[in-house]
Computed example of a mutant assay.
Amino acid sequence: MKTRKHKEQIVKELKEKFEKAPLVILTNFQGMTVAESNALRRKLREAGAEYKVVKNTLMRYAYPGTPVEQIKDAFVGPTGIVFAFEDIVAAAKALKEFMSGDDSKLQFKAAVVEGKVADYEMIKQLAELPSREELLGQLAFTLKYPVNAIAWSLENLFTKLVTVLENVKAEKEGANA
Rank of each mutant, 00 (worst) to 15 (best):
K43T: 08
L44C: 11
L44N: 07
E46V: 10
A47P: 09
A47M: 08
G48M: 07
A49R: 04
E50F: 06
K52G: 07
N56I: 02
N56V: 01
N56H: 02
T57G: 03
T57P: 00
M59N: 11
R60I: 00
R60P: 01
R60D: 03
Y61K: 15
A62H: 06
Y63V: 10
Y63I: 09
Y63A: 03
P64R: 05
G65T: 04
T66K: 03
T66R: 04
T66P: 10
T66A: 09
E69C: 10
E69H: 04
Q70E: 13
Q70I: 02
K72H: 07
K72F: 01
D73F: 00
A74N: 01
A74V: 02
F75T: 03
F75S: 02
V76E: 10
P78D: 14
P78G: 15
G80T: 06
G80W: 01
G80R: 03
I81K: 08
F83S: 13
F83P: 11
F85N: 12
E86I: 08
E86R: 10
D87I: 00
I88V: 15
I88N: 04
I88P: 01
V89Y: 01
A90I: 05
A90R: 02
A92M: 07
K93V: 01
A94Y: 01
A94G: 06
L95S: 04
L95M: 10
K96S: 12
F98M: 08
F98S: 12
M99L: 12
M99W: 03
M99E: 11
S100L: 03
S100D: 15
D102F: 09
D102M: 11
D102Y: 04
D103N: 14
S104E: 08
S104Y: 00
K105V: 12
L106I: 14
